[in-house]
Design a protein around this nucleic acid. Structure first.
Lengths: 347, 347
DNA sequence: CGTATGTACCGAAACGTTTTGGTTTTGTGA
DNA sequence: TCACAAAACCAAAACGTTTCGGTACATACG
């Protein structure tokens, strides 16, 4: 009674398979990694044993011995942002085709969280990581926790010259510039922008593109219309409120990510302004339900899935010692014109 | 020239730390798992060595030796559905508080994909998994790939009596029944329903609740208004189109998940019907941007995060040999009344 | 002085694989 | 009949931890 039956029955190992098949451990291993000489007869016996014993290989032992896990990790700042889901799926799909598995981290824009994930991945000995750093993840810090794991940056890139094996994203400056030009071509002269934190190179580039377009149009740049948010709905809402309730309200607002565009839309609806008649709204990143909104949102679309696939490719190429496409890879964006922008009302 | 410098420098091990600190391997281990006798002086030397060598523990070796990885996995059918993101975050948050890490799988409603994930998790020797089975994952199949890993079902549960250590979800029958009663109370007598695949117990329960409410109201149930979709936007759109273009169009449509509700809304917009005046729409699962839609969607809200947390708790309790709350745990839903339902037009 | 009791440390075995360097068996040609 | 090569298999050593059983030393007590 005192001695509880050891009911937990551990996993079945290669050794038990060997016994059952009347073979040695090394032969089983050879059969599993179908290499070397294994006679057809032996192979049959082994497979039978595996089936009846329900053998499941232990990747811990395997990885330990091989010094390689055939897995990579991706950490993104916000899984509830559909853009990152698509990116993750791109990473996952490419990796699967190269028979790598991928571990997913969701830092929720917090460096603390991100560090936990990166550390956990490092301890798990993933072969590399593609990283979309959290907003407040000032540079360099990641190296300390990642050792010399290969890193590929996707979407965002760090301000500092961080060591990495590649980065993928879009030409943010160009994208923001042409998006702004579109607003200008509609006749807008007073455009507000809600951008991400300046510590992010991506946000800076987009702001850069915005300002560059404004300057090209010979318009005086009013710096008070530049608001830095945190890439979430709340800050989009907050800063849109600021912009919309100031003395001279802009006729258009450009949000440099989709969450902030949603927040801005909420603010517009709340105030009761007609969009686009009274205020034009231009967002970044497309998402599958953007056409359900009224007005349907005009956005700059990024090829999220492709960014993920290329990031995975660069990373895995590096891991396997192949040389890959040159870095950085800058993909093209596309302006998706829908209903949320129109010429400003004449005053 | 021929012999490439072994530039790959492997990871630093506990052994090198031992050498650097002038201690033995076992002492380092003792210090790391801060237990046993380690003098203050020794501990200081060890910590110094760890810092300078940038030692990072190897969880593969650790898990192998311990026969325990302190990690669990969760597989959900669709990461682009915000409901599952919240659920995952619930799992993750509870697990973190119990110092477990969590691996995420996204099966995209495909049993093939799900099997791959489950297999991969099993080989990685996670200590357990919480599972939201894919639509076409007919019962039992998972056991074969999972061995005797503890499983907790969340949200959906399998039709067959599958072995598991618990399940968590809402009272779907009750939720659907009261949602339907709400529509009835508004005066609707001709209600269409777009439900999930009948192989899912959850879908069946919701349909059950719907029918039960209809019967209680002594209304003849027209089975042709019951449509089974696949829990995605496309099928929501497709079936709503069917319902809306038939001879006698229903005055309300009840969608038993959020994706299908979005698809239905798209169909309504496409046809150009006024919602809710000409057609009321009732969805399942709330999401953070539901209020941005026009009309703002009326939905049955499920406590997604809480479902995740409880699932993780049941699982981890089981893993650690504690007895947990009785299974199944049925949480309460809440009808969030917004603008997408109103009394039907008098004919 | 002899024995007991702690404290601080260490060596070696185990966890489940893969790989290296064998050994045995079988077949083949001279 | 013998040598030799190829085919089929095997034993043992790693991989980086944790843990079990010890050892060495100091201190305390009778």
């Amino acid at each position: 009674m005192k001695a509880k039956a050891k009911h937990v029955r551990r996993h079945v190992t290669i050794r038990e398979v060997a016994k059952a098949a009347g073979a040695s451990v090394s032969t089983i291993s050879a059969a599993l990694n179908n290499s070397d000489y294994v006679s057809a007869d032996m192979r049959r016996r082994i497979e039978a044993a595996i089936k009846t014993l329900k053998y499941c290989p232990n990747d811990l032992a395997r990885g330990l011995r091989l010094q390689k896990t055939h897995s990579i990790a991706i950490v993104v700042p916000d899984l509830s942002n559909n853009f990152y889901i698509e990116l993750v799926r791109g990473v996952k799909d490419y990796s699967a085709s190269a028979s790598y598995t991928v571990l997913i981290g969701d830092s929720r824009e917090s460096w603390e969280e991100e560090r936990n994930y990166l550390d956990s991945f490092h301890r798990r000995r993933v072969d590399g990581v593609v990283r979309v750093p959290a907003m407040n993840a000032a540079g360099g810090k990641a190296r300390a926790v990642l050792g010399n794991l290969p890193v590929v940056y996707a979407d965002r890139h760090p301000r500092e010259h961080d060591t990495h094996v590649g980065r993928v994203g879009v030409d943010n400056t160009q994208a923001a510039k042409s998006a702004t030009s579109y607003l200008l071509s509609l006749g807008h002269r007073d455009i507000g922008i809600i951008t991400g934190d300046a510590s992010s190179g991506t946000s800076r580039d987009r702001l850069q593109g915005f300002m560059s377009a404004i300057r090209s149009a010979k318009i005086r740049l009013d710096r008070s219309t530049i608001h830095a948010g945190h890439n979430d709905m709340e800050s989009g809402h907050f800063h849109a409120m600021q912009l919309l309730t100031r003395g001279q309200r802009p006729t258009a607002i450009f949000c440099t990510n989709n969450m902030m565009a949603l927040g801005a839309l909420a603010a517009v609806q709340e105030i009761g302004l007609a969009c686009p008649e009274e205020i034009s709204l231009l967002g970044f990143d497309d998402f599958y339900w953007a056409t359900l909104l009224r007005p349907r949102l005009t956005v700059v679309r990024q090829p999220a899935r492709e960014i993920g696939m290329i990031a995975a490719r660069i990373l895995i190429d590096h891991i396997e010692g192949r040389t890959s496409i040159p870095t950085p890879a800058l993909l093209k964006t596309q302006l998706i014109v829908r209903d949320s922008c129109c010429p400003p009302k004449k005053t």
